[in-house]
Design a protein around this nucleic acid. Sequence first.
DNA 1: AAGTGGTCTAGACCACCAC
DNA 2: TGGTGGTCTAGACCACTTG
Lengths: 242, 242
Amino acid sequence: MQQQAFAEGTLPLYLRVRDQLAGQIDKGVLTPNTRLPSERILAEQFGTTRVTTRLALAQLEAEGKIYRSNRRGWFVSPPRLIYKPTHDYSFSDNVAAQGRVPETETLDVTATEANAWLATKTGLAVGDPVIWLRRRRQIDGRPVLVENIYLNATRLPGIETYDFNRSLWKLLREQYGVELKGKRIEMYPTALVDPQASAIGVTAGTAGLYVTRCSQDGQGGFIEFDEEFWLHDALSIQVEVS
Amino acid sequence: MQQQAFAEGTLPLYLRVRDQLAGQIDKGVLTPNTRLPSERILAEQFGTTRVTTRLALAQLEAEGKIYRSNRRGWFVSPPRLIYKPTHDYSFSDNVAAQGRVPETETLDVTATEANAWLATKTGLAVGDPVIWLRRRRQIDGRPVLVENIYLNATRLPGIETYDFNRSLWKLLREQYGVELKGKRIEMYPTALVDPQASAIGVTAGTAGLYVTRCSQDGQGGFIEFDEEFWLHDALSIQVEVS
DNA sequence: AAGTGGTCTAGACCACCAC
DNA sequence: TGGTGGTCTAGACCACTTG
């Protein structure tokens, strides 16, 4: 029985499987959004078991080179979306400008009140009215993020009556004359867990990037707090300061 | 033989193991940098196998709640370091200000020339002289990042003669009168692979955050290009713009 | 209905670290 | 030297998606 065959150099088997697949991706044999052969077939091709094959696939997934779609299989990751959270970019415009197809779905709109956590993040008082908005956004048909948006209901009366399947930034400007100015952004890598994982349609534990953004108007009044849960391989963040 | 026992609710076993351990961490039974029981002992305690136990541990690792150290075991993650890449913060000062103990090791100093990749990132011409610096930085004795720094050798003559186990920012200011101004920052989550994984002392494939920072002086001249490879659970990024 | 990934078992040997 | 995680085998059944 073959165990720990460190024959070809010192690399463990699952990393050699990884290298083979990565090579096919880098050379363009496998192109973005192509489905890989099934785990059982890959295991047979590489003369190993599913467990080891899955180690290799998990490695490539961690590197952002492939992703999985529910129980449908493994796919080659498309290029990362360049995302500049300090700008007022519309998601839709930004995605389109990079030659991709955006889509936004509103999952949920709820009138509620600021809790303690939101109060410290926004400067609101506990109990202040907010509109809580949940959206899912896709690139080329792949869901890449879900977000919770908390809007200052006092500052933006009637906002819950609008269509949110579009750019919120444009809505604020056109209907309320608001230009977002000050922003406080915080982000860190973490795993996506439920309910966000389910909303995106990935397994709990999938690597993600958690981004929060607190925006004010020109006078320093709180407008919007945005909490985004991104797939870790879907974006590249860029920030410029002078 | 017990397989797929979805008895207590619908959660798979490895997620129930995860929840138990996460509860002990959140309740403070297990405190930062505490070692968890060994995988074999955990497997026995939860009445399962090592493979399933490792699934639970990998989940917690992905969430940033625990980390592993070489072959020494699993440990509870300390709080994330708050990091503001747009500021001129010194790593050492920043870590110390958050009540932690910083350490910097210079791995390597090399005089070399800009290649095509570096040229596009910095605005230098291919072949321009640069000083290439590799450093490893620790927090409370845990290595959390390695970095490649490329310094404009023309602009900073003799810089390779200084001690780099300290704040580079202070060195530039005190010895060259340089105040870093313009910055272009780019970052995305990805897995750490060799040689960075080895340098930090983690398994290849460990989740990380890749950060690059291009800094100029007040006149727009290129000073420094910094490429950082962070452990994904070690930091939280904050950016403020007005 | 067939095929996919998701979960799980019950073992094994190896490389490395601390003692 | 003994214990740790790292890697690996050869199977199994389950839940879901797709034709």
